[in-house]
Amino acid sequence: MATTAGKRNLITDVKGLRVGQAHDVRVNTGVTVILPDQPAVAACAVAGGGPGTRETDLLSAGAMVDQVDAVFLSGGSAFGLGAADGVMAGLKQAGRGFSLVERPGVPPTPIVPGAILYDLANGGDKDWDGIAPYAALGFEAFKAASGTFALGRAGAGHGALAGQFPGGTGSASVVMPEGITVGALACVNCFGSVLMPGTDAYWAWPYEVAGEFGGARPPADFSMDAEDWGAAKANPGLGQNTTIACVATDAALTPSQAQRVAQMALSGFSRAIRPVFAPFDGDAVFVLSTKGVPLPDPDPLMVTRIGELAASTLARAIARGVHEAREQSGAVA
Rank of each mutant, 00 (worst) to 15 (best):
A145Y: 12
L73M: 14
Q259L: 08
G82H: 15
R271P: 04
P107N: 13
L137H: 05
T199M: 05
G179S: 08
E227T: 13
A234Q: 07
F191D: 10
A251Y: 01
G239N: 09
L161P: 00
S146Q: 13
T254G: 07
A231P: 10
S289T: 09
A201W: 07
D228C: 07
G123E: 01
Q257A: 07
G52Q: 07
M196N: 04
A22M: 13
G86E: 06
H323D: 12
A154G: 04
T243A: 00
E327Y: 01
E227Q: 14
A40H: 12
V112G: 08
V247H: 06
M1T: 10
F79K: 09
G237M: 10
S256F: 03
A226I: 15
D37R: 14
P36V: 10
P236V: 03
D299V: 09
G130A: 01
P39A: 14
F277L: 14
D57F: 12
T4K: 12
E327N: 14
M302C: 05
G62A: 14
A145Q: 02
V31C: 05
A144H: 08
V174H: 02
E327T: 13
V287G: 05
Q67S: 15
F139Y: 15
A40R: 10
Q38A: 15
S289I: 12
Q263L: 06
S146P: 09
K126H: 09
G90L: 04
T29V: 07
A272Q: 04
Y118F: 15
V322T: 11
P51V: 02
F222W: 13
G163N: 03
G268Q: 00
F149I: 02
A47C: 12
Q259K: 11
D66H: 15
D24Q: 15
L301C: 05
G155V: 05
P206S: 04
S74T: 06
L100C: 09
A333I: 08
L91D: 09
L238N: 00
F139M: 12
V194G: 07
P300R: 01
G76T: 11
P255A: 03
A186M: 08
D250E: 11
A141F: 03
F191L: 14
A78S: 15
L195C: 01
Q164W: 03
A317T: 06
R305F: 04
E212Y: 00
D125S: 02
D281W: 05
T4M: 13
N9W: 06
V287H: 04
H23R: 15
A311I: 03
A42K: 11
Y202Q: 04
F98R: 01
A83G: 13
F165W: 11
L309W: 10
G157Y: 00
